[in-house]
């Protein structure tokens, strides 16, 4: 006897269609056919099993590093509203440090020793941090040599540049 089997798309809709996708008559027709046709029943079972396999094994869990990355990124975001105040405060301390560096140290080796921890800190900020510290050291050396007007000029220029760089570091 020549049996008319259910087509694949109908079987797929029967198995994974959302409620109401097959009308009641169509659904009953499929159920009746499946009850007496082993070939279609087997095809349906294989389809369902393959999808269940995908559902069971297909998911990937987020690595633990993800939440740490999100935390790190958001730390900068939550600090951002305070940025202008923080930047100005840091800028003032930078300028003050320059002044102290210029007048209290004898220069040379001690300047480098004082600058080393700052260099390490600056590395974490990338190129702007490194450039800023180099600028501070150079400016500190100049300050020791110049007159009061030159000193004020250097302080204002370097202070402005340092503020700009701090701003870029915090924006990152």
């Amino acid at each position: 006897m020549n049996v008319q089997h259910l087509d694949e798309e109908l079987l797929d809709r029967f198995a994974f269609g959302e409620p109401g996708e097959l009308d009641e008559v169509e659904r009953l027709r499929v159920e009746e056919h499946l009850a007496k046709c082993s070939k279609c029943s087997e095809a349906l079972e294989l389809l369902v099993r393959s999808v269940r396999m995908v559902e069971y094994w297909g998911s990937v869990k987020a690595p633990e590093s993800l939440i740490t990355r999100v935390r790190m990124k958001l730390r900068h975001k939550t600090v951002a509203p305070l940025m202008p105040i923080v930047v100005i405060a840091l800028g003032i301390t930078d300028v003050a440090r320059l002044w102290v560096l210029a007048w209290s140290l004898s220069g040379g080796l001690s300047t480098i020793v004082e600058a080393l921890p700052r260099m390490l800190e600056a590395l974490s900020y990338g190129w702007t941090g490194i450039l800023r510290v180099v600028l501070e050291i150079v400016a500190g050396s100049w300050l020791r040599m110049g007159g009061i007007s030159a000193q004020m000029g250097v302080l204002l220029t370097v202070g402005g540049l340092v503020l700009l760089m701090r701003r870029k570091e915090w924006a990152n």
Binding site: D12, F16, L46, L47, R49, S50, V51, M53, V54, Y56
Partner: peptide
């Protein structure tokens, strides 16, 4: 789904 079924059948569909 059709494609995945064919591949999984070829792989033996164990579950």
């Amino acid at each position: 789904r059709k494609k995945m079924k064919e591949i999984l059948m070829a792989e033996g569909l164990r579950r």
